[in-house]
């Protein structure tokens, strides 16, 4: 995909690279934007601490755009932490610290010039437990537009239809948009959350075990949806379900105890993993 895969490269001077990259971004001309691939995520020598507990150890990943990348590994291995750091959702937690950097389209998510709000507008997120707001279906979807001050009815209506269609929910709810989001079933709610996440047309979609609370039928629908969505979005999905990872993802990263053990094409990981731990995990012998 990109030139040098970071996990194979020797430890680069990240600080140097980041500084240089910032200068580049700062000096970049607007018309050059088209050249920069804003859907491309790089994780460079990234370590993360909750207080004194280190939960990620020197992770290096290069996540390709418009592909589905699955993060797998046993509970507590740090995959969700990594996901939540991509859009800096961990910021509000007390006593966190990180080393290394995460770059999106070459720009650090920790860039002092970057508003965290605008970062999050670029990245949609779907949580493990569906979390629609206590509002109507319609209002849930247009929330990201409303907070951006976009209140034109035509635009909102158009967004609602597009997002719901995108989340394969339109036919089921088009007649009850003014009903409370809580009136939906569990699977519908999760698809509503996906619709909500893509309403503002982000470039990246983070999914944190989106199907863990759903039955197989709803799971199937969401997996189909992910297949559909990857045409437009870079998708990172955390999952405990090995079959799901195998079904939906293009690339898979296996984490164990905060370390990235192996990161490769999904097929390779499942059929022919390089590491023994990976093989043990994907074959169900531990985890």
């Amino acid at each position: 995909m990109n030139e040098a895969s970071p996990d194979s490269a020797p430890a680069v001077d990240v600080a140097q690279a980041v500084r240089q990259r910032r200068v580049e971004v700062a000096q970049r001309k607007p018309e050059a934007d088209a050249d920069v691939n804003l859907q491309h995520i790089q994780v460079c020598n990234y370590s993360f601490f909750y207080g004194t507990t280190q939960v990620l150890f020197d992770v290096n990943m290069d996540i390709p755009e418009r592909r589905v990348t699955a993060l797998i590994g046993p509970s507590g291995c740090g995959k969700t932490t990594l996901l939540r750091n991509i859009n800096r959702m961990n910021d509000l937690i007390d006593g966190i610290r990180h080393q290394g950097d995460i770059l999106i389209g070459g720009q650090s998510v920790y860039d002092r010039y970057l508003e965290v709000i605008s970062l999050r507008k670029r990245i949609g997120m779907v949580f493990q437990k569906s979390n629609p707001f206590p509002k109507t279906i319609y209002e849930n979807i247009v929330y990201s537009l409303r907070v951006a001050g976009r209140n034109k009815k035509a635009e909102l209506d158009e967004t609602v239809e597009r997002s719901l269609r995108g989340a394969a929910l339109w036919d089921e709810v088009k007649d009850r948009l003014k009903e409370s989001a809580f009136s939906l079933s569990g699977g519908q709610m999760q698809r509503l959350c996906i619709a909500r996440a893509i309403a503002n047309r982000p470039e990246i979609l983070l999914m944190d075990e989106p199907c863990s609370a759903l039955d197989p039928v709803a799971t199937g629908k969401i997996e189909d949806l992910i297949d559909e969505l990857k045409k437009e979005y870079t998708i990172i999905i955390v999952t405990h379900n090995m079959q799901q990872a195998a079904r939906v993802s293009d690339r898979t990263a296996f984490f164990y105890l905060g370390k990235l053990i192996e990161y490769d094409d999904t097929q390779t990981i499942f059929m022919n993993p390089a590491e023994e731990q990976t093989e043990a995990y994907v074959s169900g012998r531990f985890g």
Binding site: N87, S118, R120, I123, F127, K129, N131, F133, V147
Partner: peptide, 17 residues
């Protein structure tokens, strides 16, 4: 529930919003 807050923040709402 923290989920509401996270959901809103993840959608690019400010803390005040």
């Amino acid at each position: 529930p923290e989920a509401f807050r996270s959901g809103s923040l993840a959608l690019g709402a400010s803390r005040w919003q």
